[in-house]
Nucleic acid binder design. Structure first.
Length: 309
DNA sequence: AAGGGTAGCAACCGCCTGTCA
DNA sequence: ATGACAGGCGGTTGCTACCCT
């Protein structure tokens, strides 16, 4: 586990902690509390640096640490929060009782990240990967050809484009793939429960037939959002559901934009989903017990602007 | 059974920020 | 205003366990 055993030039021990060291640290903190980590090891009689002690305590020895597998609900919370906060592991971990930032970070890197990639979702931007060339060119042409884009914008469509559309598209793509693999020509029903503050509503549910052309589907999607598009084009800006006009007002309505995953509804304390995976209906479940967004709603960091680099 | 590859994760590293004198 | 220090954070490393051939 961890770094190789040994000691640094100051004679301080490095590497895995022994049970004895753990016990010494626990005993000391129970007696004196933590803090002053630099002097703690000396006072406790540990040949460790303060930083190592702090890490050992916060990541492993703390009594409120919850060990074991992450639940599907925790998975969802991590993904949702990551889409808003980016790699702010401590902030994410703060919403998961008993989980540490290190644990969340490791879990993300070893598990969720791969899961998202397998689903065709970019784990950094939380948008469907546009190396799905067919989709990419489709979206571009849809934008260019549309009178809804009078500015002739030619930039990156990634975050400027309503990610929910991409989600839906990804759901379609993925469902299409699955059906083709299974040789199942049946209609796919992609549940779409996106609720927009500005009154934009997808048809609910959207019926998508995998045998229909992708452009038809995308046209349906674009049309379904035409209210928003035309409203914003009046302001001579590219339509962007994530760059809402007035964050304060929007939040006061009780909706927190969850990039690519719909909206978290403050009053219902539930996520109104635009999940790319029709099987992930748990997104719409009430997750009150985890209540991941309470404090976030009161901080400026809850801006609808994605924090991801 | 043995060896190579890979996933999981504890621990470390270096940078950043906040506090205080 | 500034420098020192403590603590926090995200990224990376490297060991162990497990899987596959």
């Amino acid at each position: 586990m961890g770094k190789s055993p040994g000691s640094d030039k100051n004679g301080l021990k490095k590497g895995p902690w022994t049970a004895e060291e753990d016990q010494i640290l626990i005993d000391y903190i129970q007696k004196h509390g933590h803090g002053r980590w630099r002097t703690l090891p000396k006072n406790a009689g540990l040949k460790r640096c303060g930083k190592s002690c702090r890490l050992r305590w916060t990541n492993y020895l703390r009594p409120d640490i919850k060990r074991g597998k992450f639940s599907p609900e925790e998975d969802e919370v991590i993904i949702q929060l990551h889409s808003v906060l980016g790699n702010k592991w401590s902030a994410i971990a703060a919403r998961l009782p008993g989980r540490t930032d290190n644990e969340v970070k490791n879990y993300w890197n070893t598990n969720i990240k791969k899961k998202l990639l397998r689903m065709g979702i970019d784990p950094v931007t939380h948008t469907p990967r546009l190396d799905l060339l067919e989709l990419s060119s489709l979206l571009s042409s849809s934008l260019y050809n549309s009178a809804l884009n009078p500015t002739g914008f030619t930039g990156n469509i990634g975050p400027m484009f309503n990610p929910n559309l991409l989600s839906l598209a990804a759901a379609f793509m993925s469902a299409q793939d699955k059906n083709m693999e299974n040789g199942n020509p049946e209609k796919i029903q992609v549940q779409n429960q996106v609720e927009y503050y500005q009154g934009n509503q997808f048809p609910n549910p959207v019926q998508i037939c995998p045998t229909s052309s992708s452009s038809t589907v995308m046209n349906q999607i674009l049309q379904a959002n035409s209210n928003h598009f035309s409203a914003n084009s009046a302001a001579n800006t590219l339509p962007n559901l994530w760059q809402l006009d007035d964050n304060v007002n929007n939040y006061s309505k009780g909706f927190l934009p969850m990039q690519n995953y719909g909206y978290y509804h403050e009053l219902n304390q539930s996520i109104i989903s635009s999940s790319a995976d029709q099987n992930q209906t748990c997104l719409t479940e009430n997750i009150t017990s985890l209540n991941p967004f309470g404090p976030i709603l009161s901080t400026p960091s809850s801006s609808s602007t994605p924090l991801n680099p």
